[in-house]
Design a protein around this nucleic acid. Structure first.
Lengths: 352, 352
DNA sequence: TTTAGCACTCAGGAGAAAAGAGTGCTAAAA
DNA sequence: TTTTAGCACTCTTTTCTCCTGAGTGCTAAA
C-alpha cells in the first residue's frame, strides 16, 4: 500500500528530528512543521505505528522511527543532497594532501572517512587471488648471496636478500633464474607448490634448497596479496553518541569493530553504495546499528570498500553524500593513475 | 624520613586492595590483615595522609593511595614477582605463533601486550636515521623500463618498477647503475639531495630525469625508515574499568591514544623498564593515568619500545612482570635471529 | 602505645511527590 | 468526512527527603 503524501511528510519529519536530537519526536513539533493540528498528527502517528514505520518507546512518549521507517526514508524520502562546492573542495584537498604523504591514500582512507562523517569507519581491500609472478630476477651480491626480485602480474616489484649455504657462481644463478621463470612464472599459488615437488628431483639438493627458498618467498608475496584486509578506525567516536554513552554497549560494539572486523558487511554485488539498516545486518552484533558502505575502483577490475558504522539513527543524508563523493574521488584518482611514491602504489603498465 | 615497617605494611595493603577493588579502603579490612585494632590503623592512616602517601575522597570514606603512595609501593613495597612457568610458556607460545604469521611479531606486539595485561598498549619503533643505501641495482625489463633495486645498509632490499620517457639501451642502464653507486651509495639522506644537484649538470636531461627518479625512490625508503612510528591498540579495554565508565573521560583518553600517540612517553635513557605514575607524566592528558614502558633490543644497536597505559590504579606487579618478560623474549628472539619470512624481517648479514 | 567506645560525617539508595511531555479519545467545527 | 479543540490519563523524569551504613576522629581507659 502506498502511503499518503502527508504520511510521508510526517515520517520524514520524525526521522529527521530523531536523527538530530536522539529524542522521541512528539506530535507538536511535527504539527508546527506541517501546518496542521497536533491532533491530526496524532491520528497519523497512530496509523504509521500500525503500519510499522514508527515505534513508541512507551505509551506517553513521542515516536521513534522503526527500521522499516528508516528504510522508507532512505529509499524514498531522503533528499539526496550533493556536497557543496566547499565541502567537495575540502575532501579533494585532504585527498591530495594525504596522497603526498607516506603510505598513500588507501591506508588512510578509513581515518579520513571517519573524520569526514564523524562515525567509525572501515576499509576492505579485497585480496587478489588471481595474481601470479610475472618475472623472477636474481641479482648477485657476493658468492653466497643474491637479491631475489619478484615482479607480480600487477607490476609490483618486491625483493629480498637470499643466501645459500654453499658458494655458487654466476652461471648457476643464471640457471636458477631461468628455472624459476620457466617453471614458476605465471602459475597460481597452488601450482607453484606442486611444481616445486616435481622440480625437486631434477636438481642437486643444495641448489634446490636455494630455489625453494625463492619460490617460497614469491609464494608469500602472493599469499599476502590474496589476503582480504579489513581495517577499522574511529571507534572512539561512538562515545559521543547518546546511544553509546553506556560503557557496556560501547564496549561491545567497539570490541566487535576491532576483533571481529572480518564480519563487517562486504556486499558482493557491485553496487556503488549499500545501506544496511539495523536488523538488515546479518550479523547479530550489528542488529541495532546501521552500515553504509561504498565501493571504489582500484583499476584492473579490482575494487576496494569503505564503510561507515553507526547507530540506526545515522545521518544517512550526509553520510551517503560524503561517502559517495569520497569513493568516486578515489576511483577517479586510481583511474588517472597515481603518481608513484613507493612500490605499493605504482600502477603504470609498461609493455612486456 | 624513613617510614616505620608497620606503616609500609599498611600502605602496601591499601594499595593492593585499592588496585583490586577500585573502592576506598577502610581501616577495618587492613586491621584484620595486620592483626591490630582498627583504631590503631586509623591513627596510622591519619599520619600517612599527613605524609602524602594516602588520600581521602571525603571525610567519611576510606583511604586511597596518592601518586607518591603508588611510587613508594612500586619502588619498595611491590613484590617483583616473576611469571609462573605456565604464564611464561603462554607468552612464549603466542610469540612463536605470531612469528609464523604474516607481518611478524613487532607489528602485533601492541595487540599482544594489550591482551596480555588487559590495558591499552602502545609500541614505538624508533626510526633509523643513520641508514644509508648500500647498493643500487638496475634490472632491465624492456627498452623503456627497468626495476630499481635498493639495498640499504641494514640489508633490507626494496624495489620498484621505473619507466623512462624515452627508450634506452643496456649500456645506458649500466652507466646509470654505476653513477648511482658511485654518487649516492653510502650517503645520508641530506647528502643524496645535494649530490643530485651537482650531478644534474653532468648528465643529459633525459637520463638525469631517470636517475633522479631512482634517487628519490631511494630517498623515500630512507625517509620511511627514519620515521618514528607509534601505534596504539586495545583502547576499548578502558571501558571495562570503573574509572572510565564515564563516556566523556573514556573518550578523552581514547582520542588521545589515537590522535596524540606521538606524545606518549618515550624514555630516552636505556632503562629496560620505566614506570610513570600519574602526574609524573609530563603530558597533561596523562596526568591521571600511569604508563609502564619497556624497551627491547632489535639488534644493530636499535631499540623498540612497548608500553602500557592505564589508570594510576594499575596492577603494577602483574604489568611489570609480564611486560618485562615480553620485552626480554623479544630481545632474545632478535638476538637469535628471526627466520626470514618477508623482507622486513631478514636480519642475516652476509659479508660483502 | 594501643584499644574500646561513641558521636559525627557523608555518599548512596529508597520512596514519595511533583512536573512535564505526550498520548488517546470524544465531540464539535469545518 | 476530515480536522481540531479539549480533557483526562499515562508514564518517565526530576526533585526532595529521609534513612542507612560505612568509616572517621577523638577521648579516655587499659
Amino acid at each position: 500500500m502506498e502511503l499518503s503524501e502527508r504520511k510521508k511528510q510526517i515520517l520524514k519529519a520524525v526521522v529527521e528530528h530523531y536523527i538530530e536530537s536522539a529524542e522521541p519526536v512528539g506530535s507538536k513539533v511535527v504539527s508546527q512543521e506541517l501546518g496542521v493540528s497536533s491532533a491530526t498528527i496524532r491520528n497519523e502517528f497512530a496509523e504509521l505505528c500500525d503500519l510499522g514505520y514508527l515505534e513508541q518507546p512507551h505509551t506517553s512518549a513521542g515516536r521513534v522511527p522503526s527500521p522499516s521507517g528508516y528504510r522508507l526514508y532512505v529509499n524514498e524520502l531522503m533528499e539526496r543532497r550533493s556536497l557543496s562546492a566547499q565541502e567537495a573542495e575540502n575532501i579533494d584537498e585532504t585527498l591530495r594532501d594525504r596522497l603526498e604523504s607516506v603510505g598513500g591514500v588507501v591506508a588512510n582512507a578509513g581515518a579520513l572517512v571517519s573524520s569526514l562523517v564523524n562515525y567509525p569507519a572501515y576499509t576492505v581491500t579485497d585480496g587478489n587471488r588471481a595474481l601470479t609472478v610475472e618475472r623472477f630476477e636474481l641479482v648477485p651480491v657476493d658468492d653466497k648471496s643474491f637479491i631475489a626480485v619478484v615482479m607480480t602480474s600487477d607490476k609490483n616489484v618486491k625483493s629480498q636478500l637470499q643466501s645459500a649455504a654453499l658458494p655458487f657462481d654466476g652461471d648457476r644463478l643464471a640457471d636458477l633464474r631461468h628455472l624459476l621463470n620457466a617453471h614458476f612464472a605465471g602459475r597460481s599459488r597452488a601450482e607453484m607448490g606442486e611444481h616445486l615437488l616435481s622440480v625437486s628431483e631434477q636438481l642437486p639438493p643444495e641448489l634446490f634448497l636455494v630455489l625453494s627458498k625463492t619460490v617460497e618467498y614469491a609464494g608469500g608475496i602472493l599469499d599476502e596479496a590474496a589476503r582480504r584486509d579489513v581495517e577499522t578506525t574511529g571507534a572512539s567516536r561512538l562515545l559521543k553518541m547518546p546511544e553509546y554513552r553506556d560503557a557496556d554497549k560501547a564496549h561491545e560494539l567497539m570490541t566487535f569493530l576491532v576483533d571481529n572486523k572480518e564480519n563487517l558487511p562486504v556486499p558482493e554485488d557491485g553496487a556503488p553504495l549499500k545501506i544496511l539498516i539495523g536488523p538488515e545486518n546479518v550479523n547479530e552484533a550489528l542488529r541495532d546499528t546501521s552500515v553504509v558502505v561504498a565501493s571504489y575502483d582500484i583499476g584492473d577490475g579490482m575494487r576496494g570498500l569503505v564503510g561507515v558504522v553507526g547507530p540506526t539513527r545515522m545521518d544517512y543524508a550526509t553520510v551517503t553524500a560524503r561517502l559517495s563523493y569520497f569513493a568516486e574521488s578515489l576511483t577517479k584518482m586510481f583511474g588517472k593513475g597515481l603518481p608513484a611514491a613507493d612500490d605499493t602504489k605504482d600502477r603504470r603498465t609498461p609493455k612486456e
